[in-house]
Write a protein that binds this DNA or RNA. Structure first.
Ligand SMILES: [Zn+2]
Ligand SMILES: [Zn+2]
Ligand SMILES: [Zn+2]
Ligand SMILES: [Zn+2]
Length: 621
DNA sequence: GAGTTTGAAACT
DNA sequence: CAGTTTCAAACTC
């Protein structure tokens, strides 16, 4: 999955929801509508808490609440995305966030399966297609071997992203096939497809069977998850072993536990089972979040005894968890199996659902509803990993931490993989997909808006542009780039909590600043124009004087310092004088500046003359 | 380029 | 919600 880049995110919001997207999804309902979690629908959908059911286009939160009708219909956004083939590699968009900003998450297929599949597969077509239970990607990797994605043995997979790992999947060389990134989908949905996007789409477009789960929040903030479906949408697949409900795990299972882990608590610490039931208007999903390895150690409990249903928001989203206070439960969210993603609903914070890697889901025979055990290495209140910090030797951006604190790394915060930045021990890359997904989840848990642009898009005109949270400046007067409002070139609004704000319409300071900025810009332009003119005069002169030089080696000063050159030079000097005056430079400084400029002009003239002479010399020879 | 200032987000 | 900590970027010299 990928988080849509800010730019994309801002572009997609509403448009992405259009019906076209739905049409592209084969498994969408015939009428093109999606199942929404409207109250009325809730009753109609037989969902039991124990049986995690995910039907096609399931909207976890009722979209009906959304402001726009168009959004209500939405659902299908292919997430996931990037097919990494030898030629196409999309590093950005590590995870996908729905238009309204929500995210999606996916699971990975066990690497072993993938590798085996890869061996078995020949050279399939060039499109990703589903054959029975396998998803074959015909693209050839660097190794020359076809990439094969194997779906969970049972069949369909509502997996969101698939990473086809070759035998080396644990190494940086594994191929990752993600199904649909927002950026890639966007083209499909909208009309604005860029060339790049088109290219990226090529490979992914054919993955039609999709299952989309949209978790809607109130008021337009909803999470959407689109999961590739195998053949038929089978609800309740999650709980029945061997059923079609699977998530595709893209990265090798071993990855989580091995190499990449910095200090480890991330994977090994997952020892408790956390039954989670997310009910949406139409669907309720119960996902025992427990590492496959530890499943047996967990004593299954009746859902009723140790769980509680938490209903958040007006929609029917609910989380069914052990009846422990939320604060205590939260830490466990971080201990989900590698690849598990939680998608908190906006606003509520405790609403959402968990997507568990297929490997874990399939192994769950009896959803163990157990009391969650506390895990070490995680903050009790936030669930953020605290003990895995890497020693900071350098300026980091620092890899692992950077994943934990998305704000510390712009790349990660922007939903991109680190690339060409100076991160140390960076984990924000494909090689650490597991950690990365976890980090994404953590960030979203903490702040559902984490990957959302802070500045409103301003749909109807620019008046709408404003900081989503407002600034909190204390000393900058909101007239320096320290202020996010000012940095975005927008004025502070009522939601800002700044002190001593000078960044408002009538602010004299702001006006002065604006004028100064404008004046500076004008000066730069004038100066540039003057220099350009001088250069052209000189070169022009050069052309005209060449004959003179070649004929008899006249005296260069008189040859080059013509009326035009003099005028151009004077213009430069005058510009410099103006500049000095506008910046209130003392006379001595002004004189120095002008003389300096004069020196520059002379140098240009001399340089030109020298060149001309040299050229003549070479010509004569 | 080194050092300082600043405010967002995390954390308590 | 308020105070503190941490960080990277903005800014200054
Ligand atoms: Zn980084
Ligand atoms: Zn401000
Ligand atoms: Zn502001
Ligand atoms: Zn302000």
């Amino acid at each position: 999955m990928d988080v849509v880049s800010p730019e994309l995110n801002s572009l997609l919001p509403d448009e992405i929801m259009d019906t076209e997207a739905i049409e592209d999804v084969p498994h969408s309902q015939a009428d093109g509508t999606t199942v929404q979690s409207e109250p009325s629908d809730d009753a109609s959908v037989p969902m039991e808490t124990d049986a995690p059911v995910v039907s096609e286009n399931v909207t976890l939160c009722s979209d009906a609440i959304l402001p726009k009708p168009a959004q209500a219909m939405t659902t299908s956004v292919v997430t996931g995305t990037s097919v990494t083939t030898s030629g196409l590699q999309k590093l950005t968009a590590p995870f996908t966030i729905s238009p309204a900003n929500r995210q999606i998450i996916l699971n990975k297929v066990a690497s072993s399966q993938a590798s085996e599949a890869a061996k078995a597969a020949g050279n399939p077509p060039q499109v990703i297609k589903q054959e029975g239970q396998k998803l074959l990607v015909t693209a050839i990797g660097k190794s020359g071997q076809p990439i094969v994605l194997q779906l969970p043995h049972t069949g369909s997979k509502p997996g969101v992203s698939q990473t086809a790992g070759d035998t080396k999947s644990q190494t940086p060389q594994f191929k990752v096939v993600t199904l649909g990134t927002r950026s890639e989908l966007k083209p499909v949905v909208g009309n604005q497809m860029t060339t790049l996007q088109t290219q990226q789409l090529k490979t992914v477009q054919n993955i039609k069977p999709l299952q989309s789960v949209a978790v809607g929040g109130v008021g337009g903030s909803q999470f959407k998850t689109i999961i590739p479906l195998a053949t038929q949408p089978n609800v309740q697949q999650i709980q029945v072993p061997g059923s079609r409900f699977h998530y595709v795990r893209l990265v090798t299972a071993t990855t989580a536990s091995s190499a990449g882990q910095p200090s480890g608590p991330s994977t090994s610490s997952i020892q408790t089972a956390k039954p989670m039931v997310v009910s949406t208007g139409a669907v309720r999903m119960s996902v025992p979040v427990v590492p496959a390895q530890t499943m047996k150690q967990v004593a299954p409990k009746p859902l009723t005894s140790g769980t509680q249903v938490v209903t958040t928001t007006q929609t029917q989203q609910r989380l069914i968890m052990p009846a422990t206070p939320l604060p205590q439960i939260q830490p466990n969210f971080t201990n989900l199996p590698p690849g598990t993603v939680l998608t908190p609903a906006p606003g509520g914070g405790n609403v959402g659902y968990a997507v568990v890697p297929a490997q874990y889901v399939t192994q769950i025979q009896q959803p163990p509803f157990v009391t969650l055990a506390s895990s070490s290495g995680f903050s009790a209140s936030t669930g953020i990993q605290t003990q895995a910090r890497l020693p900071l030797n350098g300026p980091n951006k620092f890899g692992f931490i950077c994943l934990l604190y998305c704000l510390y790394c712009d790349c990660f915060a922007n939903g991109e993989f680190c690339n060409n930045c100076n991160c140390n021990n960076c984990f924000n890359n494909l090689e650490h997909e597991t950690e990365r997904l976890k980090a994404i989840k953590t960030c979203l848990d903490r702040n559902p808006e984490a990957f959302k642009p802070k500045i409103g898009k301003g749909k109807e005109g620019e008046s709408d542009r404003r900081h989503s949270k407002g600034c909190n400046c204390k000393r900058s007067g909101c007239l320096k780039n320290y202020c996010e409002c000012y940095e975005a070139k927008i004025m502070c609004s009522s939601i800002c909590k700044c002190i001593g704000c000078k960044n408002f319409e009538e602010s004299p300071e702001r006006k002065t600043l604006m004028h100064l900025a404008d004046a500076a810009e004008v000066r730069v332009q004038q100066q540039t124009a003057a220099k350009t003119k001088l250069s052209s005069q000189i070169s022009d002169l050069l052309m005209r004087t060449t004959p003179v030089l070649s004929s008899g080696g006249g005296r260069l000063p008189y040859t080059f310092v013509t009326k035009e050159v003099l005028e151009a030079t004077c213009e430069c000097l005058l510009e410099q004088a103006k500049k000095a005056e506008q910046t209130h430079q003392p006379q001595t400084e002004a004189e120095r500046m002008i003389l300096e400029e004069f020196g520059h002009c002379l140098m240009r003239i001399i340089s030109s003359a020298g060149k001309a002479k040299a050229d003549c010399a070479s010509i004569n020879c």
